[in-house]
Amino acid sequence: MSPTDAPASWLATLLPATVVLDAAPPEFAEPFPFDLDRWPVILADCILSDGRHMVLGDDGGPHHVWQRHVSRSRSLAYIIVRDDAIETRRRAAQRLDRRLGGAAPSQRVGAFRPTPFQRRRLNLLLDILDLTQTPDERPTSYEIARRLIYRNATIGRGQEWKSSTERRRTLRLIGQARRLMTGDYRSLLRGVVKG
């Protein structure tokens, strides 16, 4: 299945800010008016074999929703899995519930928001990956340092470069960028920045 048909961000196991909805037990009262079709901005909407997946636009950040049971005749319940991301899951459900209740958008709860420093560092790691993944050329650590990390600084060459703190930092950043690509990105989806 293509990423357009089933984006990885809809996998609630990988993105705990995804709000999971399912049918409430039949003993519960009349269905609460819960019409997601009337949401002002629907960024993505897809019905798959496991239910309906939506990304709802909001001033406070998007809401990722997985509605496992699509019948309108039953009340819906939030499913909050008890795992290491329970607080993120709880905050995401609370944030959506507040908006459905008419509250103003909130950026305090819900999705992960990196600090300006974290955002710059993550952008640097992505730039390093872009440069190292270019099929035409494989830049050396010195070229990566000169082009991306120490753009406006003078860094030594030869033996001076090999024993420098700049080289050690560059190699650490290259390693961190590769780890981010091969799996650490999942911790970002959980709201945890490593390094």
Rank of each mutant, 00 (worst) to 15 (best):
Met1Lys: 08
Ser2Cys: 15
Ser2Tyr: 12
Pro3Cys: 01
Pro3Trp: 14
Pro3Met: 13
Asp5Ser: 13
Ala6Asn: 09
Ala6His: 11
Ser9Ala: 08
Leu11Ile: 07
Leu11Gly: 05
Ala12Arg: 00
Thr13Gln: 11
Thr13Arg: 12
Ala17Tyr: 01
Thr18Glu: 00
Val19Asp: 05
Val19Tyr: 00
Val19Thr: 15
Leu21Gly: 02
Leu21Asn: 00
Ala24Lys: 01
Ala24His: 07
Ala24Cys: 07
Pro26Val: 04
Pro26Ala: 11
Phe28Ala: 07
Ala29Glu: 13
Glu30Tyr: 03
Glu30Ile: 08
Pro31Arg: 01
Phe32Trp: 08
Pro33Thr: 14
Phe34Gln: 05
Asp35Phe: 00
Asp35Met: 06
Asp37Lys: 10
Arg38Leu: 15
Arg38Asn: 06
Trp39Thr: 04
Val41Arg: 14
Asp45Lys: 03
Ile47Trp: 02
Ser49Trp: 02
Arg52Phe: 00
Arg52Ile: 02
Leu56Tyr: 00
Asp58Glu: 10
Gly60Trp: 04
Gly61Arg: 05
Pro62Trp: 02
Pro62Gln: 07
Pro62Asp: 11
His63Pro: 01
His63Ala: 04
His64Pro: 01
His64Tyr: 12
Arg68Trp: 03
Arg68Ile: 04
Arg68Pro: 02
Val70Lys: 05
Ser71Phe: 02
Ser75Asp: 10
Ala77Arg: 13
Tyr78Met: 14
Tyr78Lys: 03
Ile79Ala: 05
Ile79Met: 12
Asp83Leu: 08
Glu87Lys: 04
Thr88Leu: 10
Arg89Cys: 01
Arg89Leu: 07
Arg90Gly: 06
Arg90Val: 06
Arg90Leu: 12
Arg91Ser: 15
Gln94Ala: 12
Gln94Asp: 14
Leu96Trp: 10
Asp97Cys: 12
Asp97Asn: 15
Asp97Lys: 05
Arg98Ala: 15
Arg98Trp: 12
Arg99Leu: 13
Arg99Ala: 14
Leu100Ser: 00
Ala103Gly: 04
Gln107Ser: 08
Val109Phe: 14
Ala111His: 12
Pro114Arg: 02
Pro116Thr: 06
Gln118Gly: 02
Ile128Glu: 00
Leu131His: 06
Thr132Met: 15
Gln133Ile: 03
Pro135His: 08
Pro135Tyr: 13
Asp136Phe: 11
Glu137Asp: 15
Glu137Leu: 13
Thr140Phe: 06
Ser141Asn: 06
Tyr142Asn: 05
Ile144Ser: 01
Arg147Gln: 15
Tyr150Val: 04
Arg151Tyr: 05
Arg151Glu: 13
Arg151Thr: 15
Asn152Thr: 08
Asn152Met: 10
Thr154His: 08
Gly156Pro: 07
Gly158Asn: 11
Glu160Trp: 10
Lys162Phe: 11
Ser164His: 04
Ser164Gly: 10
Thr165Trp: 03
Glu166Phe: 00
Glu166Tyr: 07
Arg169Tyr: 05
Arg169Gly: 02
Thr170Tyr: 05
Leu171Gly: 00
Arg172Trp: 14
Arg172Met: 11
Leu173Asn: 00
Ile174Met: 12
Gly175Phe: 07
Gly175Pro: 01
Arg178Gln: 15
Arg178Pro: 01
Leu180Asp: 09
Leu180Thr: 01
Met181Cys: 08
Met181Ser: 09
Thr182Ser: 09
Gly183Phe: 07
Asp184Arg: 10
Arg186Gln: 15
Ser187His: 12
Ser187Val: 06
Leu188Ala: 03
Leu189Gln: 07
Arg190Phe: 00
Gly191Leu: 04
Gly191Lys: 01
Gly191His: 07
Val192Ile: 13
Val193Tyr: 09
Lys194Trp: 08
